[in-house]
Amino acid sequence: MAHPRHELDSAFHTPLRFSLMAALSDGAVIDFGTLRELLETEDSPLSKSVAHLEAAGYVKVTKGYVGKRPRTWVETTAKGGRAFARHVAALRAIADGI
C-alpha cells in the first residue's frame, strides 16, 4: 500500500489555496471581496491563488455586476471538490499515522 502523501495535490500546498478551497466547500459561491475578508489576505495573493486553481480546473470564476459595480464570484468545480477531498483524506491519513 502506497504512503498517503502520494495523494497530496500540489495545487493545495500553499496555505492560501488550501484555505480558499476549504471556504468554498459544500457548494458555496463566494464573491471575491468576501473571500478576501474571510481569508484575511490582499487582492493580489488571492487573485493569483484563484487563477492557479482555475487553471487546474478546480474553481470556476464568474464575472458580472451588482447594479453598476463589477463583481467576481468563485465556486468549486466537481473536479476541484473531488481533488480537495482526496487531499484532505491524505492529510488525515498522514496525521493518523496510516
Rank of each mutant, 00 (worst) to 15 (best):
H6R: 12
V61T: 14
T76F: 03
D9P: 01
D31E: 15
S47L: 05
H6D: 05
K68W: 00
E75M: 09
D26K: 13
L53F: 05
V66P: 11
G33M: 11
K48E: 13
L53Q: 06
V29K: 15
R36Q: 15
Y65V: 08
M1W: 05
E7N: 15
T34Q: 10
R92K: 10
L24R: 09
E42C: 10
G81K: 02
E7D: 15
H13A: 04
H52Q: 13
V50A: 02
A95M: 12
L53W: 05
G57F: 10
V29I: 15
D96C: 04
T41K: 09
E75S: 15
H13N: 08
R69A: 10
W73C: 08
A56M: 12
E75N: 05
I94T: 06
A23L: 06
V29F: 13
L39G: 08
R17H: 06
R69H: 08
E37P: 03
F18T: 13
K63M: 11
S10R: 15
T72A: 02
V66T: 11
F32M: 06
L91H: 02
L53A: 06
S19I: 01
T76Y: 02
R5Q: 07
M21W: 02
A78V: 02
F84Y: 09
G80C: 00
R86V: 02
G33S: 13
S44G: 01
I30S: 05
D26W: 09
L53M: 08
T77L: 02
A56E: 15
S47D: 09
T41W: 06
A23I: 10
G57I: 11
V74H: 03
A83E: 05
F32W: 04
G27Q: 01
A89G: 04
P4E: 03
A56I: 03
R36E: 14
I98P: 00
R69M: 04
V29E: 15
A55I: 00
P15D: 04
K63F: 07
R86M: 01
Y65D: 08
D31A: 08
G27W: 00
T72V: 10
W73D: 14
S44H: 06
G27D: 02
D31S: 07
V66M: 03
S49W: 08
G81F: 05
M21Y: 03
M1S: 13
A85E: 15
S47N: 11
H52T: 14
D31F: 07
G81Q: 07
K48S: 12
A78S: 03
V74C: 07
S49A: 15
R71H: 05
R86Y: 00
R5V: 12
E40R: 14
S49Y: 06
R82V: 11
K60P: 11
F32T: 03
A56G: 08
